[in-house]
Design a protein around this nucleic acid. Structure first.
Lengths: 286, 286
DNA sequence: ATTTTTCTGTAAATTATTTACAATAAAGCT
DNA sequence: AGCTTTATTGTAAATAATTTACAGAAAAAT
């Protein structure tokens, strides 16, 4: 059983469970972290059922037995640090906030990974593979994401550009043609200027891919929406991890394109690597 | 016991273990993934020791008993996907490479998190807190990181700039003064131009923080080196996750600064939030 | 209302883990 | 070197946990 799917398996099989098994499920969902250290007797007592019922429950959600279930649960919890909430406080030490920032980022990435629409992603990759040129639009924090994306696609021998300036964006949009692709990146999903540019691009017959929250104007304005929802408490001490999710999603697109381009690309990358070498300090030999 | 530290605890306590306990440790390290599904009898047999020895070993590495040990190990393995190797292949489906890209990024982040020098990090935060102005230097992929960092620090009411152009970088470097801080970002750690700019900044009496691989010329040229080592197979199909690690590290620095700045910042961020709102589409009410 | 089926718990058996102790090996001492 | 002491390991027993088999109860169907 894939660990990440366990709590989901529990919740989704809730209706099909027997009455007393459901008691077990409910108790477990309400006490995820404690359950992994419980013995079957304790759990049975707390859930007010008999021990065999617990075992039956474990089998019902696809595990071998109680031990196997606990193991799977422990793994899922370890891979989703969110279950213990992460929020940096005033009193945190360096070590504490460092861990929290990293953990919350990891948490975001895992959640995004599990919520992606793979069909859309595939469509996006297909579109990018046959594109004549690819441009990235983004403002604010997304401008950096666009720059990064441009750099990444450039390495893949795709003619790529990134615009953070509304004027340039609109000028570029006006020059788009069928066979071109624009990737619009927005964290809020509600940037008016960006939506205008997107409409213009669509009217020119080019394809617009959006990386934005679901149900947002930006996502809705796209031909291929890639939706990413990160609950972003806009408190200061909460780091903005949606940027990172956007970047990783673009990595996925790039990998998809690289895969399609296949072998010839490898040579190109090697050449580029060698080209960069002249700008560097020699490697020490120790 | 903190799960992430388990295998480390095992390896590091190897010398202090007794002969037969070491047999257990060695077997476990060589069979991490299998061990979590083993019973104590199997493990004892495979490691050619008695069952109590296994229990003694578990206690020696800081666990309550065998069960507790297995749980901790399972959690650690779940939180480090790397133990099953991640490399995108030609035949991977969208789902496969998507997961691999996300997982390898997560893996990188967790490794970096555990290898950071927190003392240096604290020094960097201290320096940034009292800085008059902060500038970010980076080329290539690190240029996007620098842009992102600039944006992030700007939000924290720090006068920040980012330069990806060697000329601008050098001009800026020449205008540095004591009390200023430069953060030099490099994935290779060997960019000659960057090192020159760093030397110039240092000669002006400003502080240079480097984000670069350890033992690299860039790291060595800094007053405060923040070292990040990501084993980056320069194969095409391996995503560049060191960028992401750099970004997250900068998040940490930003959080550190935000924490020091304390309450007044909160108001500022709220104001800025409201300011951005006029550039956006209205929120739908559904 | 009775039969059949499904569900749940009791009690027993199995299996796993841990403890107590004894034997052995290693180290220290005279 | 030989004896004593201490440390290490395994054997066997006890404890504890999980699972199975079965029977009783509840629900559904006839």
């Amino acid at each position: 059983m894939k660990p990440a799917a366990l709590t989901w398996a529990i919740s989704s099989s809730l209706p099909s469970l027997r009455k007393s098994e459901r008691k077990v499920a409910e108790f477990i969902l309400a006490n995820l972290t404690n359950v992994i250290r419980m013995r079957i007797v304790d759990l049975a007592e707390k859930a007010e059922v008999s021990e065999p019922t617990v075992v039956r429950f474990c089998r019902a959600v696809g595990c071998e037995g109680f031990q196997d279930f606990k193991l799977a649960l422990a793994q899922q919890l370890a891979s989703s640090p969110s279950y213990g909430q992460i929020a940096v406080t005033d009193q945190d030490s360096v070590a504490e906030y460092t861990f929290k920032v990293f953990d919350s980022t990891v948490d975001t990435l895992l959640k995004v990974r599990d919520s992606l629409d793979l069909k859309m992603l595939d469509q996006a990759v297909q579109a990018l593979c046959v594109a004549n040129r690819v441009e990235f639009y983004g403002f604010g924090a997304s401008a950096a994401v666009a720059t990064d994306a441009q750099h990444k696609f450039f390495r893949l021998q795709v003619s790529a550009a990134a615009y953070a300036d509304p004027h340039l964006q609109n000028m570029s949009a006006a020059s788009m043609a069928p066979g071109d692709v624009v990737i619009a990146i927005s964290q809020s999903g509600r940037t008016t200027t960006l939506i205008n540019a997107m409409e213009r691009v669509k009217s020119r017959g080019a394809i617009v891919i959006a990386i934005a929250p679901s149900d947002s104007p930006v996502a809705n304005a796209a031909n291929i929406p890639l939706t990413i929802d990160v609950k972003e408490d806009f408190q200061i001490y909460t780091p903005l991890s949606s940027r990172i999710a956007h970047l990783v999603l673009i990595d996925v697109l790039a990998i998809g394109v690289a895969q399609h381009k296949g072998g010839r690309l490898q040579e190109h990358l090697l050449e580029m690597q060698l080209g960069l070498e002249v700008l560097r300090e020699p490697l020490e030999n120790h």
